Deep mutational scan, measured.
Amino acid sequence: SKDTIRINGIDIDVKDLHEEWKRLVEEALKRGDEELAIELLERALKE
């Protein structure tokens, strides 16, 4: 798994994120759902 995830052309540092969150965000991006990916990231970062 990578340490960054690219959303809207912005590389976001996710190395401190739990693997499960990372996977969910990557799944959302694979489906092209950037809005969901951002929402998941925000939730993950609050934890």
Rank of each mutant, 00 (worst) to 15 (best):
V25W: 05
V14Y: 10
K2G: 14
I38M: 13
S1A: 12
A28R: 00
A28H: 02
I10N: 08
D13G: 05
L24K: 06
K22C: 08
R43I: 09
A37H: 00
I5R: 03
R6W: 03
R23C: 07
N8G: 14
W21V: 15
A37C: 03
A28P: 00
D16C: 15
L36N: 05
W21N: 14
K22Q: 13
V14W: 12
E39Y: 04
E34S: 15
D13M: 11
E26D: 08
E26L: 12
E26Y: 10
E20R: 07
K30I: 13
A28T: 02
D13E: 08
H18D: 15
A28E: 00
V14Q: 03
N8I: 04
K46G: 09
E27S: 04
R23T: 13
A37Q: 00
D3R: 06
V14N: 02
L41R: 01
D11Y: 09
I5V: 13
L29H: 01
W21H: 15
E34V: 15
D3M: 01
E27F: 01
L17A: 02
E47G: 07
E20C: 03
D11I: 07
I7P: 02
I7N: 01
E42F: 04
E20M: 10
E47R: 03
A44I: 06
K15G: 13
I5H: 04
R31D: 08
I7C: 03
R31K: 12
V14F: 10
L40G: 00
L41C: 03
E20N: 15
N8F: 03
H18F: 06
R6H: 11
D33H: 07
I5C: 01
I7Y: 01
R6Q: 09
L29T: 01
E19G: 06
T4G: 05
A28C: 05
L29G: 00
K15M: 07
A44G: 14
D33P: 01
E26G: 05
D16I: 09
L24G: 02
D13K: 07
E35N: 15
W21D: 15
E35V: 15
E26A: 09
E47T: 09
L45G: 07
A28Q: 01
S1P: 12
K30T: 10
T4W: 04
D16E: 10
T4Q: 09
K46I: 07
G9N: 07
R31G: 07
D33S: 05
E42V: 07
R23P: 09
L17T: 01
E39F: 03
G32T: 00
A37N: 00
L17Q: 01
I7K: 02
R6L: 09
E19N: 05
L29Y: 04
K15R: 13
K22V: 15
E20F: 13
A37W: 02
A37E: 00
A37L: 05
T4V: 14
K15I: 07
I7Q: 02
